Each structure stands twice: as C-alpha cells, then as structure tokens.
Simulated scan of single mutants.
Amino acid sequence: MLFDMDGTLVDSEKVWDVGLRELAHRYGGELSVAARTRMVGTSMSESMDILHIDIAQPWRDVEASVTWLEDRVCKLFAEGLIWRPGARELLADVRAAGIPTALVTATRRRLVDVALETIGAHNFDVVVCGDEVGNAKPHPEPYLTAAAKLGAQAARCVAIEDSPTGVASAKAAGCLVVAVPCEVALIPMDGVVTIDSLTATDAVTLRSLVARRAVA
C-alpha cells in the first residue's frame, strides 16, 4: 500500500498555504489562488518557480526561497498536523492486516521527518521523499522506487493520492490508484477509483480491488 502524505493522510496543504503566502508577502507580492492550485503535488523547486513567476519576480533564487519556506513550514509542522478524515483509521487497518506500506511524498526529507512525529514512522516500511528521487511526481519514479523497496510489483500496489500530479505519477508507475480529492478537483480517469473520503474504504476493500485487477 502506497500513501501520499500532504492532503491525503494529513491536512497539511493549509499549513503550506500559510508558509507560501508569508513568503510571497516577504517579497512584497500576493500569491494568487490559481498559482497556489498549480503548486499542489509539485516539488519544492517547481512550486518556487510558480510563486516567483506569479509575483512577477522570476529572477528570485529558487534554493533561497526553498530554504526560507522549509524553515517556516518545519516550525508549523512541529506544532502538530491534523489527520484527514479516515486516514488514521485506514492506516491502522492496513497495518493490522499485515500489508507492507510506504509513504511516497513530494515533500523533502527534513520536513517529512517532522511530519512523521504526528503520523508515526512505525506505520511505514518504506519512506520515499521528494529529494530522494531523480524525478519528482508526476514522473513515475517515486512510486516505482517505493514498490521496488517493498519488494513488490507496482501493478500489485494500491496508491492513494489526492492531487492530479500524484495520481499521474502513480498511474504512470502502473499502480492501482485510489484518488481522494482534497484541495484540487480531479478529472475522472480510467483505472482510477475516486472516493469522497478515506472513511469510505478499508484494507479488505483495497485488497479486493487488487484481486479483481489480477483476474481482469
């Protein structure tokens, strides 16, 4: 089982909102809603490019902005993160069922380690962070890497995602994708099961999806 983090397990996109808008204000700008929406699910460097262009300051140094934002969001993460509805219960159910589990996130390791203080490092056999792969989502590498580290074929894994970028990454890797929209609406796609909330599924249901795919 492969889980995205931001917007899927924890309601951290609102925390990112705070940091991103503070950074834009620091530069004398205002982050637009459209630009913020485009950032969901992207890497830190891509998000900074979007922010810099949005506030008409494309010359800004990406790494300097990433460093400031990480410092700020790290402090906000340390104050605690709120679970998405049904996320903690589903994760516990999956673990109790003995299903190997990975966290696959575009967020960088430094922040993920802080987030894991809330969601529990013990809940994951493997953690793949955005700065630990050569190609970020929507490239399939993050999910292919996680599956390989679990010793599983991606086609036999369920990936749970909330963003178009993450869904594209998991689908390209060959995973069975369960999409749970959070901040951004998702377009229906073949091979993607969309649910309103993680309260609507459990380990038995997810296993049955994989079994049905195997005999299809």
Rank of each mutant, 00 (worst) to 15 (best):
R88V: 08
R88S: 13
R88D: 08
R88F: 03
E89H: 04
L90V: 06
L90E: 02
L90Y: 02
L90K: 02
L90M: 02
L90H: 02
A92C: 06
D93S: 14
D93Q: 13
D93W: 12
D93I: 12
V94Q: 04
V94D: 02
R95I: 15
R95W: 10
A96C: 04
A96W: 06
A96L: 11
A97R: 09
A97C: 07
G98C: 11
G98M: 10
G98R: 07
G98W: 09
G98V: 11
G98A: 12
I99V: 15
I99E: 04
P100E: 04
T101E: 09
T101M: 10
A102P: 02
A102I: 12
A102C: 08
A102D: 01
L103G: 05
L103K: 05
L103A: 04
L103I: 05
L103S: 07
V104D: 01
T105F: 04
T105Y: 00
A106P: 01
A106T: 14
A106S: 14
T107S: 13
T107W: 02
R108C: 10
R108M: 12
R109V: 02
R109D: 03
R110Y: 01
R110H: 06
R110E: 09
R110S: 13
R110L: 07
R110W: 02
L111N: 11
L111G: 04
L111W: 03
L111P: 00
L111Q: 08
V112M: 09
V112S: 04
V112C: 08
D113M: 12
D113K: 05
D113V: 12
V114L: 08
V114C: 09
V114M: 10
V114W: 06
V114A: 11
V114P: 03
A115G: 09
A115Y: 05
A115E: 03
L116Y: 06
L116A: 10
L116N: 10
L116H: 08
E117L: 13
T118A: 05
T118P: 01
I119W: 04
I119T: 11
G120N: 06
G120I: 14
G120T: 10
G120L: 14
A121Q: 11
H122L: 12
H122C: 12
H122R: 14
H122F: 10
H122Q: 14
H122P: 01
H122T: 15
F124G: 02
F124Y: 13
F124T: 03
F124D: 01
F124W: 05
D125V: 14
D125H: 15
D125E: 15
V126M: 07
V126T: 09
V126K: 04
V127T: 10
V127W: 03
V127M: 07
V127Y: 05
V127Q: 05
V127E: 00
V127H: 01
V128C: 07
V128P: 00
C129A: 13
C129V: 08
C129L: 09
C129E: 08
G130I: 10
D131P: 03
D131L: 03
D131Q: 03
E132S: 12
E132L: 05
E132W: 03
E132G: 06
V133S: 01
V133H: 01
V133W: 00
G134Y: 07
G134T: 15
G134M: 11
G134E: 15
G134H: 13
N135Y: 12
N135E: 11
N135I: 13
A136H: 14
A136Q: 15
A136N: 15
A136C: 15
A136I: 14
